[in-house]
Amino acid sequence: MTEKKTTAKKKTAKKTEKQKFVPKIVAFACNWCSYAGADNAGVNRIQYSPHFRVIRTMCSGRVKPAFVLKAFEMGADGVLVSGCHFGDCHYIFGNYRAVELFEKTKKLVHLLGLEDERLRLEWVSAAEGIRWAELINEFVDQITRLGPSPLSENGKKS
């Protein structure tokens, strides 16, 4: 078991060396469900990719288009917005509002020619540590496959 893991690790290390592309991913997590879900992954020691950074907000409804666009402007390769499942929101309908804002953001990101996969909205509950881990792994994989954002090195504010 241990042996297998080390070889697997070496392989990934080699791979990254070859590709040299480490994605820049921003994950917005709501305090009550998704951030708690990420904590749950920790308590259960579920291992997942470290190639992302978390920003905690109280509610997924707080994540406005400007934040997401700013992230892409600054060179992010992927943005994940994560909130509570429907019916589970600490603020009752905050996640529905998040969907409305997200739809807007998604249209803009699409117009800009970014691949639709670079922006995701997902629901992770406080008990779904495994889901959080799988989600991050899957998203990191997806963005790694897509490669760097066509905007990553440009468009930064001077």
Binding site: L69, K70, E73, L112, P150, N154, K157
Partner: peptide, 19 residues
């Protein structure tokens, strides 16, 4: 929140391919 300014700055990218 500066969303529109972000859109404008993003468009300075030479490699973009808009829809």
């Amino acid at each position: 929140g500066g969303a529109i300014q972000s859109l404008m700055r993003i468009m300075t990218s030479p490699t973009m391919n808009q829809n």
